[in-house]
Design a protein around this nucleic acid. Structure first.
Lengths: 191, 191
DNA sequence: GTCTATACGAAGATAGAC
DNA sequence: GTCTATCTTCGTATAGAC
């Protein structure tokens, strides 16, 4: 299973590079080099080229975070929120504010052709998945349907935005402030 | 004053291209073409090259939004919030979800060298400026210092994140949900 | 001072050798 | 089936003609 291994390394490497540099500055060449895989191989594993690799990287990141979120949400929505924000905090601090969220990164670059649209669609699905997980948990704890959806969207949007603010300011202050407000909001709603 | 005019066109054009494609996919060549300016001229106006142009584009966007925000905040923090979110909504809808916030765009791409760091620093200053305007208005309406800062940061982060979510999903739903929650939050705090 | 033409590197993708 | 070498295009930046 060297093949599946190399493939995984390519997807994980692409996700890491995208969350640092963004999609356009992520080159297949460098992803292949970092994964110790010849350039030609990437087109064997990913006939769709860069866009296919990017779409899989986005889904890979989405699932990784989604699994962690599912585990923590079992203890309640506020625990899920804390874990979600703590994860982004670690990404920021661990990379000295050089890395962020790959799903956010691909969402702010235009999608002109059809291929790029596939990446954007993958990003939309990831965001929607996280929101749904949070909203379900809130509903399970007695929050009304509409309010649960609004709160879940607010959490995802605020977290993603805060990550960007933290990167610009090279400080965790924005994320910490957002965490304080969101926690008190969710505690009041589903405490 | 053809010179100042061409310079302005270059900065405004760069801001528009960055908010659509991101910083890396924005080429000086195309910015110059779109501004009907020869490529060589851009290096006359901006000796620092692409990074200088990008930093000015970020500041330009920051000031444009900041002026609008200042005007609307005169009527109170909730009016400022509404105008801030309405502006991003117009950018999204008016571009068919192809354009977003240029300040966000440059904040999610790595800054390896010193030049790029100047762009990131400009972005940090813009975010900080918007937050300060909002926080000041909240304080003027009786919100305590710490809470005002937290709420201001939450508004900027959530708005920026929501813009990205809307672009991915090609829908204003995320922004509308965020608007509903933020409005009720600010009304409760400073109503 | 303004701009055309070009240098130089790196990108995505593929053709064809092993 | 795997990978090396290459094709083509486009990027930033500049040198030198008007």
């Amino acid at each position: 299973m060297t093949e599946a291994d190399a493939r995984r390394r390519l997807v994980a490497g692409a996700a890491d590079m995208i969350r640092r540099r963004g999609l356009n500055a992520t080159s297949i060449r460098e992803v292949a080099k970092h994964a110790a895989t010849p350039l030609g191989s990437t087109y064997h594993y990913f006939p769709g080229g860069k866009q296919q690799l990017a779409a899989e990287a986005v889904r890979f990141a989405g699932e990784t975070v989604g699994r962690m979120l599912a585990g923590q949400l079992a203890a309640g929505p506020v625990d899920g929120l804390r874990a979600f924000l703590a994860l982004w905090r670690e990404v920021l601090v661990g990379s000295e504010f050089r890395a962020g969220c790959p799903v956010l990164a691909v969402s702010v670059e235009e999608a002109p052709d059809e291929d790029r649209l596939a990446v954007l669609t993958a990003a939309a699905a990831v965001f929607d998945g996280w929101e749904t997980q949070l909203a379900d948990s809130l509903r399970d704890h007695g929050v009304a349907d509409g309010e649960a959806e609004e709160l879940a969207t607010l959490v995802v949007a605020a977290a993603e935005g805060a990550v960007a603010l933290c990167r610009a300011q090279r400080s965790t202050v924005p994320l910490d402030r957002v965490a304080a407000r969101l926690e008190s909001l969710l505690t009041a709603a589903a405490g």
